[in-house]
Design a protein around this nucleic acid. Structure first.
Length: 203
DNA sequence: TACCAGGTCCTCG
DNA sequence: CGAGGACATGGT
């Protein structure tokens, strides 16, 4: 919590995930919960598109889907995979990601419960993507332990640099209150800090 | 030009 | 399990 307070003092509230604002015609970091299913879906798609890819590239791909009115399960279910792939080309790994989106949409249409266990069974959804979806789209308390997070805590000697995903998640959540907004903001601050301090993590 | 970005899956041992 | 490779674009 001391680290969280320091980061917050340093950078201020970040907002945690970019959502497209049609009025302003741009992505904005929001500081609340997604208001409707469409926003949830947009976050889920963004989580898949940004896998091992910078947000800028993922954003262009997402914008293509938004402009084609494709943030919609039925439409995404119907569009041919190769056509979808071309729309998201800028996000890299575009053929794989098209398949991942298709698989994810299939999962949503199955009406299975959105749990970590069920998400991890979906092809293309690993631990980080599952936790991002659960936390940012579905407001469930799962701390996202991505590479930034691992680097952040290992450089500060809170853990080994090859610590496993679940292990680091457990370590962090055992030391802070189980609060969704805290999880969201803390992770956003870690990302912010890590992007600024590529090498020298001080403080 | 080379490296990397808010990973995941598959294969092999 | 775990290491190693494949997947791919765009920015710096």
């Amino acid at each position: 919590m001391r680290l969280y307070e320091e980061l917050l003092a340093l950078y201020g509230k970040q907002g945690w995930w970019p959502l497209f604002n049609p009025i302003k015609n741009k992505f904005e970091y929001y500081s609340g919960n997604p208001k409707n299913f469409k926003q949830k879906l947009e976050i889920c798609l963004g989580a898949i598109l940004t896998q091992n890819t910078n947000w800028n590239n993922a954003e262009k791909a997402l914008l293509n889907l938004i402009n084609k009115n494709l943030i919609n399960i039925d439409k995404l279910d119907r569009i041919p995979e190769n056509k979808l792939a071309l729309l998201i080309k800028s996000s890299g790994y575009y053929k794989q990601k098209a398949k991942k989106i298709k698989e994810f949409i299939k999962f949503l249409k199955s009406n299975k419960e959105i749990t970590r266990e069920n998400l991890l069974k979906v092809w293309g959804v690993g631990k980080e993507t599952a936790d991002s979806i659960l936390l940012y789209a579905y407001d469930k308390p799962y701390f996202v332990t991505d590479n930034y997070t691992k680097r952040f805590f290992s450089k500060l000697d809170y853990c080994k640099k090859d610590i496993g995903y679940d292990e680091l998640q457990k370590l962090i959540t055992s030391k802070i209150p189980k609060d969704i907004n805290l999880y969201k903001e803390f992770h956003a601050l870690i990302v912010k800090h890590s992007k600024i301090n590529k090498d020298g993590l001080k403080q």
